[in-house]
Design a binder for these strands. Structure first.
Lengths: 209, 209
DNA sequence: AATTGTGAATTGATTCACAGCT
DNA sequence: AGCTGTGAATCAATTCACAATT
């Protein structure tokens, strides 16, 4: 019998888990307690077989003839994604984009809290920012004290690799990278790249008639 | 002989094009004029065969025994992605995130310009914002006047679908959607979803030991 | 000698088809 | 009867292996 180790599970399945979770939360808000794979799949814009296959990577959660219990799925997914408890995140690089994300605050609702911001120039933009900006020297202490595992990286591209190295050296295991550069990291470190210009480029390609 | 129509080309190939383009721009900055698939692939963190296969979707650009001309590839990719000329983009929803993105301004360097911001409450946050915030009534005029094809959607989830419908009705063909909801759109409209909480969730999943 | 371009092989993800529960 | 769970089949993307070119 084949074990479902993490590496067996398609990455896209994990992304879809997040989508399902949001759909389920909406169902819960609407006081819906049970949902069929057909209905949930529709909300998530996938095929129902895809949803069922995705779920079976993690176990059996449904009742044949009936469907899935909304609350149970929410709990299961929250556990899997590690968002049941608030997770501390740091942000490094308080330029335009970094400042923008700090002022966003949309993370907290989803289980994440930016607990500190860092910049090589800690005086920078202080006026505009409610949050104290730490110098890079404080990294070690804050990361260890608060058990931080994830960082948002919003430094300019030329500095990104060097800063990433520092973060990894201090025990950061997951980086949300906004710098338009592919970071070189050890295998056990996870990087997710977000690049808004790239997303626009991609749209731009597809809408050309 | 098989034609390379757009729908034949994997979506991931187009994303990688953006990555390649950024690597090439760095090479150009460093006055490097020629690059092998091996070297460029390494910078983009893909296999060289992948890079070569990606390129052949669009034509033959290399010289055997030599490699690719950096400048030529840059031009080719800029043309494909439609970033050779500055493209006008509008932003709808000037809440926290929308305001954040407006203040970011990192797009211009990459070929996009946010030419106008809209909000159902056009008085909102005006103090914090350099840019005038238009009421939704101005949509039609600005979109047609400036030939806008793309929109950044940063309204709250419950309003997102309704606003998307409006945008599409006015001729918007590409939406960069930040609302945590899967938009329902006609086939010819392209939606790219960006969800920062989802990216963090995803990281969170993979870093659990 | 070096490096591209590409069919064939492989690997991975999605969808089908239906058996198995409730 | 209705709906889940899943092996098999299909479809898509990646990688290999090597012929073609400079």
């Amino acid at each position: 019998m084949k074990k479902n180790v993490k590496s067996d599970i398609p990455r896209k399945t994990i992304y879809r888990l997040s989508v399902y979770l949001r759909c389920l939360q909406r169902l819960k808000t609407n006081k819906i307690r049970t949902v069929s794979s057909e209905a949930l799949a529709k909300a998530a814009q996938v095929k129902s077989t895809q949803l069922r296959k995705d779920l079976t990577y993690f176990g059996q959660f449904g009742t044949r003839g009936l469907g899935y219990d909304v609350e149970q799925l929410i709990v299961m997914m929250g556990d899997l994604l590690g968002t049941t408890s608030l997770q501390p995140v740091i942000l490094v690089g308080v330029g335009n984009l970094g400042l923008a994300l700090l002022s966003y605050q949309g993370f907290e609702q989803e289980g994440f809290e930016i607990i500190a911001a860092f910049d090589s120039d800690s005086q920078r933009k202080r006026a505009k920012c409610r949050m104290p900006i730490h110098p890079m020297e404080d990294l070690t202490q804050i990361i260890t004290d608060q058990g931080v595992k994830m960082a948002i990286l919003t430094v300019p591209a030329p500095e990104a690799q060097e800063v990433a190295n520092q973060l990894i050296g201090q025990g950061i295991a997951g980086i949300l990278n906004f710098a338009p550069i592919m970071l070189h990291v050890p295998e056990e470190v996870m990087v997710n790249n977000v690049n808004l210009a790239m997303e626009l480029e991609n749209l731009s390609y597809f809408i050309q008639q």
